[in-house]
Amino acid sequence: MQGQPQRQRGLALFDVLIALLVLALGVPALCRLQALVLLEGSNARARAAAAQLAREKLDDLRQFTQLPAAGGGTYGFDECGDDRGGRENADGSLMVAAGDIALSDFRYQRHWSVSGYSWCDAAALTPGVCSGSARAALLQIRVTLSWTQVDGSAAELSLDGAIAAIDPLLAGGALIRRPSLLPPAPLPL
Rank of each mutant, 00 (worst) to 15 (best):
Q4R: 14
P5N: 10
R7F: 10
L11R: 07
A12Y: 07
A12Q: 15
L13M: 10
L13F: 09
L17E: 03
A19I: 02
V22T: 12
L23P: 11
L25F: 09
L36H: 10
L36Q: 14
V37A: 14
L39V: 05
N43L: 02
N43E: 15
R45P: 08
A50E: 00
A50P: 09
R55Q: 15
E56S: 04
E56A: 09
K57T: 03
L58M: 04
R62N: 11
L67C: 04
L67G: 05
G72V: 05
G73E: 05
G73V: 06
Y75A: 03
G76S: 12
D78E: 15
D78Q: 14
D82E: 08
D82G: 05
R84T: 13
R84C: 06
R84E: 06
G85H: 06
R87K: 09
E88Q: 12
N89V: 04
D100S: 11
L103C: 03
L103T: 00
W112G: 00
S115D: 15
G116T: 01
S118R: 12
W119Y: 14
C120I: 07
A124I: 02
A124Q: 09
G128M: 01
G132T: 10
Q140C: 07
Q149S: 13
D151R: 04
A155R: 10
A155I: 04
E156H: 08
L157K: 00
L157V: 00
G161P: 03
A165K: 01
D167W: 03
P179I: 06
S180D: 02
S180H: 06
L182S: 09
